[in-house]
Amino acid sequence: MSFNYILGQLINGIKLGSIYAIIAIGYSMVYGILRLINFAHGDLLTVGVYTMLVLMGFSGLPIWLVILAGCIVSIMVGMTMERLVYRPLRGSGEETTLISSLAVSVFLQNLISMIFTPQKKAFHLPDFLTVNHSLGPVSLSTINILTMISIVVILIALTLLLKKTKIGMAMRACSDNLAASQLMGIKINNVVVVAFVIGSGLAALTGVMLAGEYKTIEPLMGFVPGLKAFCAAVLGGIGSLNGAVLGGFIIGIAEVLFAGLMPSDITPYRDAFIFFLLIVVLLVKPNGILGSSEGGRS
C-alpha cells in the first residue's frame, strides 16, 4: 500500500467527485428555491448527451458547438418540464412534486429508450479531450482537467450571480421564504425558470464529462449519478453551492477509497456505503455540513 497507490485512488475519487459536484450544484439550486427533489434532474444529463451523440453524427461540426447544442436542448427540456409539470403543482406539497418528478424521470428514460433503443452506445469525444496527461504518478485526461477548472469557474460565476445581481438576490429571497418573496413582488416564475436553466445546462455539461470518461451512454445513465448528486447536495448542506461541491467530492472520494482500500469481498457494496454515510452525516448534522438551519422557512 504505497503512497502512490493512495494518491492514485484519491485522484480517481476526485475525478468522480467533480462530476457529482457539478450535478449537485444544479440540484441544490432547484431544491433551495422550490424544496423540490427533482429525480428527473439526472435524466436531463442523458437528454443532453444523446443530443450530442446525434450531432456528432454530422461530421464537421466543431465539438464546442455540439456541446453547446446539447446544453441548449437539455435546458429547453428542463424548462418544459418545469412549465408543464412542476408549475401547475406548485404549492401542492413536497410529496406530490417528488412523485411527479419520478414520473417525469421514467417518462424521459423511456422516451430516450424508444428513440435511440435501450442498448448502450459508444460515445467517443475527439482525442484531444480524452488524451491522458501524466504528471508523475498522477494521470488526468484533458476533460478531467477541464472539469476541475469548470467547477471553479461555475462556483465563482454563480456566487457572483447570487450576490451581485437582482435575479440572484431574488433567488436568495425565494430560497429563504417563497411566500414572503411573492408578497414582496418578486416574480417567482422567473426565479424558478432561471434555477432550472442553470441546473439543466450544468447537467448536460456533466453528461459530456461522464460520457467522456466512460465512453458509453445508455438511457438510464443519468439516474444513479443524479441520486448521488442529490446525496452530495444534502450532505454538503442543501441550498449551499460550496456545500454541494464539497459534498460531491466527499462522496466521490469516499466511494473510490471504499472500493480501493477495503477487502474485495465488500467492494461491490460501495453504493450502499455512500447512502449509509449520508445517513450518518444527517444524524449528526441534520442540515448538512455547510447548511443553514431550516427554522425560518415557512
Binding site: M1, S2, Y5, G8, Q9, N12, K15, L16, L210, E213, Y214, T216, M221, V224, E255, V256, L257, F258, A259, G260, S264, D265, T267, P268, Y269, R270, D271
Partner: peptide, 21 residues
C-alpha cells in the same frame, strides 16, 4: 487474485489501480 464489482457501476478505476498495485 480476485476483485468484485456490481453490474451497472460505470467506474472501475479503484479496482484497476488495486490490480496494478
Amino acid at each position: 487474485g480476485t476483485d468484485n464489482y456490481m453490474n451497472g457501476d460505470p467506474d472501475f478505476s479503484a479496482q484497476i489501480d488495486k490490480f496494478i498495485n
